[in-house]
């Protein structure tokens, strides 16, 4: 590009009378070519302008904003719903019904008990530990029953002895 032409454009630029197209020409000129020493200082300005045009927000910024908007919308729905007195009353009734139902279900389960009958004749233990536990419990039950028998006999013996003393 001719020296005179650039000088004219520079003059117009600094007077504030250049068009956008002329300003683009200047930017292009100062990006691509080596410039005379008297224009060196201006080169920095036009290079800076072009570099500034590439200054952007970090990637992912738009998604961050959209995420915030989405979160806001969800909170907004609940707030809007609870703004009306009738909605608040409905929410309270709903909560109380839920709590009552949960309480009822729990107490029914406690009353009936969650038990299952096992047919011990056909039951097959799955592990050695389980077999050991079952056997130990069976022995304990047997020993309890035997103890009951011993206690009865002892009682009878005491009664017989008392009868003998009276006689």
């Amino acid at each position: 590009m001719a020296y005179e032409n650039i000088q004219t454009l520079l003059d117009k630029y600094f007077e504030g009378s250049s068009s956008l197209a002329e300003e683009k020409q200047l930017k292009k000129y100062f990006q691509e070519e080596e410039v005379p020493p008297e224009w060196e200082a201006y080169k920095v300005l036009f290079v800076w302008q072009v570099e500034e045009q590439d200054l952007n927000l970090p990637t992912g910024f738009e998604n961050k904003i959209l995420g915030q908007i989405e979160a806001q919308q969800q909170v907004g729905f609940v707030r809007r719903f609870l703004r009306h007195p009738l909605s608040r009353a409905a929410a309270i009734i709903f909560l109380m019904t839920g709590m009552w139902w949960a309480y009822q279900t729990d107490s029914q389960q406690i009353e009936t008990g969650v038990t299952a009958e096992i047919n011990w004749d056909q039951y097959q233990p799955k592990t050695k530990e389980e077999a050991l536990t079952i056997t130990r419990n069976a022995m304990l039950m047997l020993s309890k029953e035997l103890n009951k028998g011993t206690a009865r006999v002892a009682k009878e013996v005491v009664k017989v002895r008392q009868l003998g003393r009276v006689d």
Binding site: L55, N56, L57, F61, E62, Q68, I69, Q72
Partner: peptide, 28 residues
């Protein structure tokens, strides 16, 4: 236009990180 707003905010506050926060607030 958020990038343009970002450059505009940088020109006023002179700090990129702060300009990003400003644009975020503006967008919301």
């Amino acid at each position: 236009i958020s990038d343009k707003l970002f450059r505009f905010a940088v020109r006023i506050v002179g700090d990129r990180s702060e300009a990003e926060d400003i644009v975020q607030e503006v967008m919301i």
